[in-house]
């Protein structure tokens, strides 16, 4: 098993390396000279040349690529923002906890509420409880998260004055962003959990368990749930990666200075070091999320654990 993990980590490094290559090339290919963009039409040619030299843009593509890859992967130096002079990596370090707080809390809500709702709907298939949950899920999935966010601000900040509308001063500032981020995920997880449950409910081993005289509640917990978890975990893995990458919208509405807002500002201002660093971080998180997801599979399902460890199969 530890060999498997080691292999995966090595694979992650390769993925990050490729991500770095791709994002560097893409930003390089974007038309336009970042220096003149920054300085504007009125800057003299001299000034622009100096700026290009400071930014390292006067080297050839391979020269720039080489120094970028070396700096990023060997020296772990992600450079400085072109628009502001802050070090990208320290800025990311400051912003990451905020995005993670919102994202991870939203994920926990997704999984817990989504799965519970889905199980509830699945075990009451065809009855009003099922329809109710599905309607709620449909509403959550259709309403865009920024719309829900704005509605929440109107209600909780303006009308009731319970929660602040923006900023990161106190823990109260995080309540609405977390809720707003989680609705869509809850809906998706509920639908996924429901359909997993329905599949499992019809499974033969459930009938076997019933025929043994096992109580229904325990059947749901011990037999149905573990088997239904696999697709749910897949959803969680994807959701975890999406949490980090999907933060721009929520962070803009609530003025939370996190990684999403950072990426957005980088893109808008053609601030390539920021864009590149953010993309690599997203790739890193996605890889870690998928790895954790795969390890969860192994933990839950002995068949997969056997595959990973290439255990001996006894016939």
């Amino acid at each position: 098993m530890s060999r498997y993990i080691l292999k995966r980590i090595l694979g992650m490094i390769v993925i990050l390396w490729c991500a770095g290559l791709v994002i560097f090339t893409l930003t390089y290919l974007v038309p336009g000279d970042p220096a003149s963009l920054l300085l504007g039409k009125e800057a003299s040619q001299e000034t622009i040349e100096i700026k290009r030299h400071v930014m390292g843009l006067d080297k050839s593509f391979l020269g720039q690529l080489g120094s970028y890859m070396y700096n990023t992967f060997v020296r772990l130096d992600f450079g400085e923002s072109w628009v502001f002079s802050s070090s990208v990596i320290s800025e990311l370090g400051v912003r990451l906890p905020r995005t993670l707080i919102v994202g991870l809390a939203a994920m926990v809500l997704n999984v817990v509420f989504g799965t519970l709702l889905g199980i509830f709907a699945g075990t009451h298939e065809g009855r009003w409880q099922d329809s109710l949950v599905m309607i709620i899920a449909m509403v959550f999935v259709s309403a865009p998260d920024f719309f829900v966010a704005l509605l929440m601000i109107l209600l909780f900040s303006l009308k009731l004055n319970w929660l602040p509308a923006y900023g990161i001063d106190s823990w109260k500032c995080y309540v609405m962003p977390i809720l707003a981020s989680s609705f869509g995920g809850i809906a998706i997880n509920a639908r996924q959990a429901r359909s997993s449950m329905l599949e499992v409910i019809r499974a033969d081993f459930v009938t076997t368990a019933r025929s043994k005289g096992q109580k229904e509640g325990i059947i749901v917990r011990k037999h149905m749930l573990p088997n239904a978890m696999m697709p749910i975990i897949t959803g969680v893995g994807g959701g975890l990666a999406g949490v980090i990458a999907g933060s721009p919208v929520i962070e803009t509405v609530f003025s939370i200075p996190g990684v999403g807002a950072y990426l957005l500002s980088g893109v808008n201002q053609h601030d390539y070091p920021v864009v590149r660093a953010c993309v690599i971080f997203f790739a890193l998180f996605a890889s870690i999320a998928v790895l954790i997801m795969d390890l969860c599979y192994a933990f839950l399902d002995p068949r997969i654990k056997a595959q990973y460890s290439k255990g001996k199969k006894v016939k």
């Binding site: 601000i153 900040s157 303006l158 602040p164 509308a165 923006y166 900023g167 509405v253 609530f254 003025s255």
Partner: peptide, 18 residues
């Protein structure tokens, strides 16, 4: 100075007195 990216959120801040 508070960074409030969305104009509508800022309006709410004004109304609340923040």
């Amino acid at each position: 100075m508070d960074v409030v990216a969305e104009a509508s959120t800022a309006v709410i801040g004004l109304e609340q007195g923040n």
